[in-house]
Each structure stands twice: as structure tokens, then as C-alpha cells.
Design a protein around this nucleic acid. Structure first.
Lengths: 111, 111
DNA sequence: GACCGACTTGAAGATTTCTGCAACTCCGAA
DNA sequence: TTCGGAGTTGCAGAAATCTTCAAGTCGGTC
């Protein structure tokens, strides 16, 4: 297997490695959402959110389209939900009462 | 859900966001391996590999133990394999003949 | 067509991550 | 007890990422 493929995989994971971007993806799991909604749920400046959305867009993980005055975002593939779920599982295995985060993690219904 | 949990998830993904670390994890899927072996398969300096292993160790994704003169590394949980597999699927969905990497990706047997 | 809300873009400074070198520890063999 | 192989650690310069501010675009509405 060639080197560039590892590069691509690493970039994909790195793209997910940001709190705001994770938050966005989890919100988009429930279907397309306008930026305005995301902004209302995530405590971050509009320009910052826009930058993070651009990162996800460039990586091809989300797509966007205009609906009148609003810009909508959606997951480009439902596989993203699997990835997030797998991440959640590992976090559970790794944290194993390392601290209180575990309790909170467990309370999140596994889809 | 509180902010710190997103932080933890993001950190977990960021930990995977490096070519050498991805390579290491894929090699460890087949069972524990001494650093010497990893070094032989990954084209990187020993100190660099050691730094990357330290990152994975700190994140709790791998564990290490000494076996005589060798230091062995192993996945801390088999769930990691699922995560890598999910990543592979997304990459496949996202790349969809965006370039030649796709062909290579497909040739990799899905576990 | 002027204005406002909804977003995006560009750029700069601050922060974090990476890489490679040098020095150091640990173990086993001679 | 000395030596060499196997790894790790500390650090500094280089590179990538984040955050924020200012400016700009696109649609609707009055």
C-alpha cells in the first residue's frame, strides 16, 4: 500500500479533530440543517463556524446548498454516523472511569 | 451534553490524524508488535516513531510493555479496528473516483 | 435600489503540532 | 563492567491550525 493513502486517511481523521466540527456532524446526523440553526446550538462566532464548515466541505464530509436566503448543510454520506458511533465506543473503552466524562458518554443513546 | 465531551471526542480523532499513527494502528490490528518491527515497516526515524507512539499511549489508544530487550505495543481495545474500518468506508464514499486512491482503497480487504 | 439578515472570505497573530538532533536509560551479551 | 542494540526524552526551529476582525457576497423586502 502506498504512502498517499495513509495521508488521505490521516487527513480525514484530522478533519474530525475539532470540537466545533464534531458538534456540527452530530447535529447533521438528524438531517440537513441551515447554518442559522447550527449557530444557535453551537457557541461560536459566525465566521468561525463558517471556517469550520469550509473545512468539512473541502474534505467532502458535508455538502451545502442554498434554500432561499438560508444555506443548508448535510452529511455527504450517512457513513459518517458510523464513524462517530465507533469513536464513541472507543472513548468509552478508553476512559473507563478515568473521570466523569464516562457517565455522560453512556447517557448518550447509541442511535 | 457538556462542552468537555466534544473536546474529548475531538482529541480522540485528532490523535488518529497523522500518517505514522494510522500506519501503526493498522499494523497493531494483527496483534502486539515490538517497536523494532514497526520501525522496519514504517519509513520514519526512531525518535519520530517514538514520539508518535507516545501520543497514542497518552491518548490511551495503545498500551506498551517490555518483553526482555524489546518494547511491545498493542491496541488497548479492539474497537480501534472498527474505527479504522469506518474511516475506510467514508474515504471510499468521499473519494468516489475523485482520484486514483480509490482503486487502492478498494483493494484493501475489509477486515 | 437601499437595506438588512445570513453567510463567506481573507488575512494576521497566537497557539499547537511536527521533525530531527543530541543525550540518556535499560537490558543482555561478552 | 563495558559495549551495543532498542527505545525514549528534551528541545528548538519549521510548519500547520485556530481564532478573530474587517470586508464582501447573495437574497429578500420595503
Amino acid at each position: 500500500m502506498s504512502v498517499p493513502l495513509y495521508q488521505a486517511k490521516a487527513e480525514m481523521f484530522r478533519t474530525l479533530g475539532h470540537p466545533v466540527r464534531i458538534r456540527v456532524l452530530e447535529l447533521l446526523q438528524n438531517g440537513p440543517r441551515p447554518v442559522r440553526d447550527l449557530l444557535a446550538e453551537i457557541d461560536v462566532e459566525a465566521s468561525n463556524l463558517s471556517q469550520q464548515l469550509a473545512v468539512l466541505r473541502r474534505a467532502g464530509i458535508v455538502t451545502s446548498f442554498r434554500d432561499g436566503a438560508l444555506v443548508m448543510y448535510a452529511l455527504s454520506t450517512p457513513d459518517v454516523a458510523d464513524l462517530l458511533a465507533a469513536g464513541r465506543r472507543i472513548l468509552g473503552a478508553v476512559l473507563t472511569d478515568r473521570d466523569g466524562l464516562l457517565v455522560e458518554l453512556r447517557s448518550q443513546t447509541p442511535r
